[in-house]
């Protein structure tokens, strides 16, 4: 029964959006795969090889752009900008609204007048944010996995799983930060806005830092570096890159519960 608890009810709220995301991501993947299987990728690579290195790094990240293969194109385009935007949008939106939105629209009072502790409420909301983010990451993996086979293109499955898993971990990290901001302020738009802005700053740091030698080390402060810095689509899993995501998720999980427990709900 989808309305039997807060976790399931939050997923029930997501059901329409989930279908739109599923169709949207799949259609985008279909379009990309159709175009890529119809054109000569080497020609693209020749053009990009003539670009200044800094510009190529800014667009494609530290590892630059490899457009000589479909997986290179996916790495440079889909998994550098579009997929992270989608995953972070869902995670930050879900996280920022999880407690703060209920507080803003005043529905939280009634929910918490039932025998449900604040801890249970926020943990259920965190789990639902995690599941939504995982869903978007899995849809990405499935779309490119299925369409790779359908278009007889070589996309290394281990790499695809690895980058989608990193995508999921990065998503829940930003989602948890948004949840924490929501517990601080009780203001949903602030929580979503700050979470999104942090993601944007993180993206810019990861892409700009390698261009300037003196800033190069600042990339380690960006979650985008741990997401794609090891080039997981090509090289597969790098478990040590999971550590910052897990640490941030855990820290903000604890802080969110602590903050939500101790705050006066106005």
């Amino acid at each position: 029964m989808m309305l039997s608890n807060i976790f399931l009810k939050t997923l029930w709220d997501f059901k329409k959006a989930a279908i739109y995301w599923l169709v949207g991501i799949f259609l985008l993947a279909l379009y990309i795969m159709f175009v890529l299987s119809s054109i000569e990728l080497d020609a693209f690579q020749t053009i990009f090889d003539s670009f200044p290195k800094a510009l190529v790094q800014f667009i494609g990240g530290e590892s630059g752009i490899d457009l000589s293969s479909i997986s290179g194109f996916l790495n440079a385009q889909i998994f550098t900008i579009m997929a992270p935007i989608m995953v972070i949008a869902v995670a930050v939106n879900s996280g920022g609204k999880s407690t703060a939105s209920e507080e803003t629209i005043k529905s939280l009072d009634i929910i918490l007048s039932a025998p449900i502790s604040r801890e249970s409420f926020i943990i259920q909301k965190i789990f639902s944010m995690t599941i939504k983010t995982l869903f978007i990451a899995i849809v990405h993996w499935l779309s490119y996995f299925i369409l790779g086979i359908a278009f007889a293109q070589t996309i290394p499955n281990e790499g695809l799983v690895a980058i989608c898993f990193n995508l999921f971990l990065m998503g829940i990290s930003f989602g948890m930060i948004s949840i924490f901001i929501g517990t601080l302020s009780g203001n949903a738009s602030q929580a979503v806005g700050i979470g999104g802005a942090l993601a944007l700053i993180s993206y810019l740091i990861a892409n700009i830092a390698p261009l300037v030698d003196s800033l190069n080390n600042t990339k380690y402060f960006s979650l985008f570096y741990y997401y794609k810095g090891s080039d997981p689509l090509k090289t597969g899993f790098h478990t040590w890159h999971w550590a910052p995501f897990l640490a941030i998720t855990l820290i903000f999980f604890i802080l969110s519960i602590y903050q939500f427990r101790k705050r006066n709900l106005l």
């Binding site: 608890n5 709220d13 629209i105 005043k106 529905s107 009072d109 009634i110 929910i111 039932a114 449900i116």
Partner: peptide, 25 residues
């Protein structure tokens, strides 16, 4: 409990909302 500013969820019917609340209780 009935708060001073009662709001329900716009995307739910009255029955869905009451079912949800009774499950929570």
């Amino acid at each position: 409990y009935l708060p001073g500013e009662f709001t329900t969820y716009d995307n739910m019917t009255g029955l869905q909302y009451l079912t949800h609340m009774m499950h929570l209780r």
